[in-house]
Design a protein around this nucleic acid. Sequence first.
RNA 1: GGUGAGGUUCCCGAGUGGCCAAAGGGAUCAGACUGUAAAUCUGACGCGCGAGCUUCGGUGGUUCGAAUCCACCCCUCACCA
Length: 433
Amino acid sequence: MSDMTLLQDLKARGLIAQTTSEDELDQHLNESSVTLYCGFDPTADSLHLGHLVPLLMLKRFQDYGHRPIALVGGATGMIGDPSFKAQERSLNTADVVAQWSNCLKTQISRFINFDESDGGAILANNYDWTASIDVLTFLRDIGKHFTVNTMISKESVRQRIEREGSGISFTEFTYQILQSYDYQYLNKEYGCTLQIGGSDQWGNIVGGIDLTRRMNRAHVYGLTLPLITKSDGTKFGKTEGGAVWLDANKTSPYAFYQFWLQTPDADVYRFLKFFTFMSVADIDALEQQDAEREGKPLGQTVLAREVTALVHGEEGFIAAQRITEALFSGDLSNLGENDYEQLSLDGLPSSVLNADTLAETPLTTLFADAGLAASGKQVKDALQRKAVIINGEEFGMEDNLNAQGVFSAERALFGKYFLVKLGKKKHHLFVAG
RNA sequence: GGUGAGGUUCCCGAGUGGCCAAAGGGAUCAGACUGUAAAUCUGACGCGCGAGCUUCGGUGGUUCGAAUCCACCCCUCACCA
C-alpha cells in the first residue's frame, strides 16, 4: 500500500461516508502522525460484526503511522445513545456496564497494537474522566457551551423529539454532550484531532468538534464510515441465530467462517475491501479473475479466510476450515476418532444423546431441541424430503419414532459419534452418552 | 380534554357469526437447479410423529357456534383544544 495516501485508499475501499473539510483532513494526515479515536459503547458482553469495520479502521490508521485511541464507553454506555433509535432504551446497571466494558477491552486489544512505543495505541475508558464530574461543574463548564436549539435540531434525535407517544428522556438527550466532552478531553490530554465512527455518529462527532473548538481553541476533524449494506436489502451481520459476534464463545470460528463463506457474489468484493487488509488492486484483480473463470468464484473463500484469521487467529481459521472440509466434502472417511473429539471443540454444535429417553423421543423433537431446526414441523419437512443424513445414510419420516434404531451402536462411528446433516448446511454432532 | 380511525399468526396486510389455524405479500426453512452464491420453480410455514391442542390487544358477556356481535378496560395513530 504504497503510493496512495490513507484517505485515497479509504475512498477506494468505499469506507468513507462523510468527512469534515476533506482537503484539510488529507493534508493533516499526511504531514504528521495524528492521534484519532473511535468509541465503542458496551451494549453487550462482546463486539459484533457492526463494530468490526471501525475497529479495523483504527488499525488502518495505525498502519499508516497514526496513533489510535480505542475508547470504551463505560460512561456513555450507562446513558444510552439515542442516535436514530426509535425508542428509549432501558438502562443497564453499573455492574453490568463495567463488566461489559472489560469484555470489550479484551477484544479490542487483539486487533490493535497497544505497545508502549510512540506509535502504540491507547485504550481508554470514558468512565475514568466522566464519573467524577459533579453536576454543577458539568452544567457550568460543559453544558454552557451547548445550545438546546442545536441539540434538538440534530437529525439523529429529531424523530424521537417529534414523535408523539414516544419522546426522549433528558438522560438520553444528554448523551451528545458526554460524547462531545470525550472528544474535548482526548484532544486536551492526548492531542487527539480526529474522531471516526459509524455514519449514525455524525451528529455526535460534530458536537465534539464544536466543543473542542470552544473549550480548547483547537481545530479538529471528523470522519464517518458508511453503514454496511447487503445487495438484497436485508440487514448485514445477522444469521438465524442473531448477531454474528466476535467472541468465539458466542459465535464459534466455524460459524463465523461459514457466515463469510455464504456471502452473495454481489457483495463479496465490496466486503473484501471493508473487512480485509488486502490492497484494492489485489481485490480488483481477484474480481477480474473470478469473472473470467467458469464456476465457483474464489472471492468468498478468500474473504472467509482473511476475516476469520483476523478475528480468530490462524488457529481459529484452520479449525474452521478443517470442519468445513470434513462436513461439506461429504467424505467422512478421512476423519479419525480424535477428529470427532476435536470437531465439537472447534465449534461444531454438538450434544449428548440421552440413552434413557431415546426410545420415546421422536427425531422431530430430538433435532428441534438440538437446534437443528426451529420446530419439529421443519424437521418433519426435512425428513419427508430425505434431507436428513446421519453418518452418510439417509433417513425419512418412517424413522421418526425409531430414534433408538437410528442411533444404534452399529451405526455409530468409533462407537459413539453420529454426524447429523439436515438440509445442505446444518450439521450437528451427537455423541452417545 | 374533544372527535375520528385502528390494534389479526415473525413483519405488512385481508377477513365483519359457522366453509377460519385464518386470503395475499414479505421474511424464514426444506427440495430441484447450481457453486454452501444469485435468479427461478416446488413444498412447508401456531404447536404436536399423531389423536389433538392453543391463537386474532385485555377481561367478561350474548350465541349451539365469535377474529367477527355487546360491555368495560388498555394501547396506538390522526385532527382539534
